[in-house]
């Protein structure tokens, strides 16, 4: 019998790729034959990973159907098996994989739908109402929710997701699938992840702040997109994911 580390390496490789012959002599024949037993383990592994992807990408699955999704999932698993025990976050590379997955080339919006699914899942796993960075705006402090994530998409994935979630086939059929710029902000709310559209200026401002830019730099980025202060007020400062408070130094002065 090989040593344990060799046996486990061989068995893991066999289960991942379905090559059982290399293990046959290691297993005692019983009521369940060795090939059948290994097949059961392989099936458990593949089902668990497909299900993990299905849970993370529900809109993508609904869009393409179970059979297509399962084929894509199995193809992904073969080249991106999990390295860690915790499957949270497994499939982060799935949208990028779909970009090169030949059977999906006829569905150009599928990648963006999957990207949105992945970020919804990521945000939904974060704490509700946790404060992120505090940005000193001079007289005011801007506190952003720690769960904020931004997406800059080419296709209207949020509209597709809404229509699928509500089972509204008419709305799904009416979605304009022409490519464009769809900027979205997501953040954690008690029910999961909230999604809102952002204008170009608000998106640029928020993206710069989240990248750690100084407020002046963020404002320049917003101005480059044609910002006006009213748009920033409406889309950022008054948004549920942001909180404006008076600077403590100003309060002391008063």
């Amino acid at each position: 019998m090989p040593d344990l580390i060799s046996l486990q390496t061989r068995m893991a490789d066999a289960l991942l790729h379905g090559r059982f012959a290399a293990l046959g002599d290691q297993i005692v024949a019983g009521p369940v034959a060795a090939q059948e037993a290994l097949g059961l383990h392989r099936n458990t592994v593949l089902c668990a990973l497909s299900n993990a992807l299905r849970l993370t990408f529900p809109t993508a699955e609904a869009l393409v159907g179970e059979a297509f999704f399962d084929q894509a999932a199995l193809a992904f698993v073969a080249v991106h098996p999990p390295a860690r025990a915790c499957l949270t976050g497994y499939g982060a590379d799935f949208p990028a994989f779909l970009e090169t997955y030949a059977p999906a080339t006829d569905i150009p919006y599928l990648v963006d739908v999957a990207r949105l699914d992945a970020v919804v899942e990521e945000v939904g796993a974060l704490s509700v109402g946790a404060d992120g960075g505090v940005i000193d705006l001079g007289q005011m402090l801007l506190t952003l929710d720690a769960s904020i994530r931004l997406l800059d998409l080419t296709y209207p994935a949020a509209a597709i997701r809404d229509a699928i979630e509500t089972g509204d086939d008419a709305a799904l059929g009416a979605v304009d699938l022409a490519p464009g710029r769809y900027r979205r902000v997501l953040w954690r709310v008690p029910a999961g992840a909230a999604i809102r559209p952002l204008g170009p200026a608000a998106f640029a401002f928020l993206a710069a702040l989240l990248d750690g830019a100084a407020p002046d730099t963020a404002l320049k980025a917003a101005l480059a997109e044609g910002a006006d202060l009213i748009a920033l007020q409406t889309e950022i400062f008054a948004a549920p994911f942001a909180r404006l408070t008076m600077s403590p130094t100003l309060e002391t002065d008063r």
Partner: peptide, 26 residues
């Protein structure tokens, strides 16, 4: 049981509770 192995391609964690040989080494 075991689930993790180190393959030449990197660490692998299979989501299953795989059986062990019951040896002194194990």
């Amino acid at each position: 049981s075991w689930s993790a192995a180190s393959l030449p391609t990197g660490p692998l964690h299979l989501p299953d509770l795989l059986p062990l040989p019951y040896t002194e080494e194990a």
